[in-house]
Write a protein that binds this DNA or RNA. Structure first.
Length: 564
RNA sequence: GGCCCCUUGGUCAAGCGGCUAAGACAUCGCCCUCUCACGGCGAAAACGGGAGUUCGAUUCUCCCAGGGGUCACCA
């Protein structure tokens, strides 16, 4: 068969050669050891947590080595194209602080455009480039056209390819069928091709695989180590009938032309690695280094781990935003599961930016992990505890503006007041860690506003304390309350009230002989706390009263007294 | 079912032939303390199973089991 003629027949309009492409996308001028990585999502409109996980690795590896990190949009599936998905994707990534050096970006009008010399970065715009290499493969007898339509294909199939249960018989039948089909597809004459083309029949381009499933391909994955798999012997599709490449073909062409050095992707891609290695070899390209990352999982109803899907809580990174997690908290959490020694480093370097952490591929786990919300919360509390009151204010206000407008209005009405509340216990060596989510702030500090204030707890502790004692304590406190007191004087007054009512003012004395007292100063404080905050728990009462102001304190205590 | 990946406490995990098998989160105590939060101390909790190599296996090899992934003109 005259392959050069066949190539010309199939791609009459392709005049560029692979050499032209190489000239157009020359090697990058980068320092020794610099890594070129990419985040290459298909635009479905949302970012998967696993995607952010991978993007973080990409970003660290590239920037830690003075390399390049770029964004490529893998929009080769027209059927799945979602309107505005690419824009949404770029925005979400930016929101999470993922910074690309080049690739698809948004211009000032919000339209997707390119930045960088290796574009276009949207695969749907790279058609001509793929065709140059497709033509080459045909000319070299490594790929061939297949005119079997999808419908004919399905008819040909005696077995259900998408069958849920795959028995031994199923596998044998499927393998045999595939063998027969491959043989049938490969046997064609030039006349038949010309006839099909003349008739305008659609066709796909398939690789003419030289693989032998009896033989093994061996390669080293940077995370999994040495991997041994059967060679690919399937004539998989390179170009779909619409002329757009499949993932496999686009991956080889793009990552070569864009000079990607490290391909980081989920381990669901591991089974197709032999296809990719074969393609790189066919095209005469040097294969990149592969890193197949373990997946982020969830627990299903049977207690088994399952790949986290976009529908699962936490699968879509937007979930975290909506729930009230700060983006940097999610990233910080991701880092802790990405590198096993990150937490140790963080403890030693509490104030350094995460970019100072020496990210190490060897410290990556080969096995999948569960999303651990309690852990995320803990990480978040730590991150937030290091922020200033101003920062927390800005962030809470921004989150509330989107998810709790009513509360946002309250917050922005008097920023100074909010900041004085948020400043309680902030700073210093042992900062308070009251909330890990912006959504928890309202419950934490709502009592500072009359419209959110409500007595939630029982001031009598279930009848443990007599109403008369409580009233007496509240009255005594009001009588002596002076905003000018410092915290010591303030507390001394409470102790005095305790003594008067037969409550121990000295905790040690109380513990030594609890029977001798009606309660202790902590109980008296509790009466005040419930009256003023409505709750059994609150930050330091002295500070709370200082912020609330005399009128509000007295009014609330009075209201509590009257309600008893 | 074939192929491939994974397997240390509830979760994330150190470990890289010899240890009372780290640490973090969560849980439970105690301490600090006006409550909470913070912080401190402590408890409980693990090498999936079986062979083999070895003086000695969590660690190396093989087998099995379990879990996961994949088998498209989707990525």
């Amino acid at each position: 068969m005259d392959y050069a003629y066949l190539a010309q027949l199939l791609f009459p309009n392709v005049t560029d050669t692979p050499a032209d492409m190489e000239a157009r996308y020359p090697a990058r001028q980068l320092p020794e050891g610099a890594k070129v990585t990419r985040f290459a999502p298909s635009p479905t409109g949302f970012v998967h947590l696993g995607g952010l996980y991978g993007a973080t690795i990409d970003e660290r590896l590239a920037h830690q080595s003075q390399g390049v990190f770029y964004l490529r949009i893998e929009d080769t599936d027209a059927k799945r194209e979602v309107e505005g998905a690419t824009e949404k994707l770029i925005k979400t990534l930016a929101h999470y602080g993922v910074e690309f050096d080049e690739g698809a970006i948004l211009d000032e009008n919000g339209n997707v455009t390119d930045k960088g010399a290796y574009g276009p970065y949207k695969q749907s715009q790279r058609g001509p480039i793929y065709h140059v290499f497709a033509k080459q493969l045909v000319a070299e007898g490594k790929a061939y056209p297949c005119f079997t339509t999808e419908e004919e294909y399905e008819e040909l199939q005696a077995i259900d390819k998408k069958a849920e249960v795959k028995s031994k018989e199923w596998t044998e039948a499927a393998n045999e069928e595939a063998r027969q089909r491959k043989l049938a597809m490969r046997s064609f004459t030039m006349e038949e091709v010309e006839a099909h083309l003349a008739a305008g029949h659609p066709w796909v381009l398939r690789i003419l695989s030289d693989g032998d499933s009896e033989k093994k391909v061996i390669f080293t994955d940077l995370i999994k180590g040495k991997v041994e798999m059967p060679e690919n012997d399937e004539d998989f599709v390179l170009l779909k009938s619409d002329g757009i490449p499949t993932y496999h073909f686009a991956h080889a062409v793009d990552d070569h032309l864009m000079h990607t050095t490290h391909v980081i992707r989920g381990e669901e891609w591991l089974p197709s690695a032999p296809k990719h290695l074969q393609l790189f070899r066919y095209l005469g390209f040097k294969a990149p280094k592969y890193m197949h990352t373990a997946q982020v999982m969830k627990l299903d109803e049977n207690g088994n781990k399952k790949k986290l899907s976009k529908r699962d809580m936490g699968g879509n990174v937007d979930d975290y935003t909506r729930l009230g997690y700060a983006t940097e908290c999610v990233c910080e959490y991701l880092l802790t599961i990405l590198n096993s020694n990150y937490e140790e480093w963080r403890m030693q370097n509490p104030d350094k930016p995460y970019t100072d952490f020496p990210f190490n591929i060897k410290k990556m786990s080969a096995s999948g992990c569960l999303v651990d919300f309690p852990k995320l919360n803990d990480v978040s509390k730590n991150v937030i505890s290091k922020m200033t009151a101003d920062e927390v204010y800005d962030r809470v206000a921004a989150w509330s503006a989107e998810f709790d407008p009513e509360f946002a209005a309250v917050l922005t009405a008097d920023p100074a007041y909010v900041k004085s509340i948020l400043a309680i216990g902030r700073g210093g060596k042992k900062p308070r860690k009251d909330f890990g989510l912006w959504s928890e702030v309202k419950a934490y500090m709502g009592f500072f506003y009359d419209q959110y204030f409500a007595v939630q707890d029982d001031v009598t502790a279930g009848g443990k304390f007599a109403v008369a004692d409580i009233k007496a304590a509240l009255d005594a406190f009001c009588a002596g309350f002076d905003m000018a007191d410092d915290s010591t004087v303030w507390f001394d007054k409470i102790k005095a009230i305790a003594d008067q009512l037969g409550f121990a003012s000295d905790m040690k004395a109380y513990k030594a002989n609890p029977e001798a007292y009606r309660g202790n100063v902590a109980d008296v404080s509790m009466f005040l706390r419930v009256a003023v905050t409505g709750k059994l728990n609150s930050p330091d009462m002295y500070t709370v009263m200082q912020i609330l102001g005399r009128d509000r304190v007295l009014a609330r205590i009075g209201a509590m007294r009257d309600s008893l």
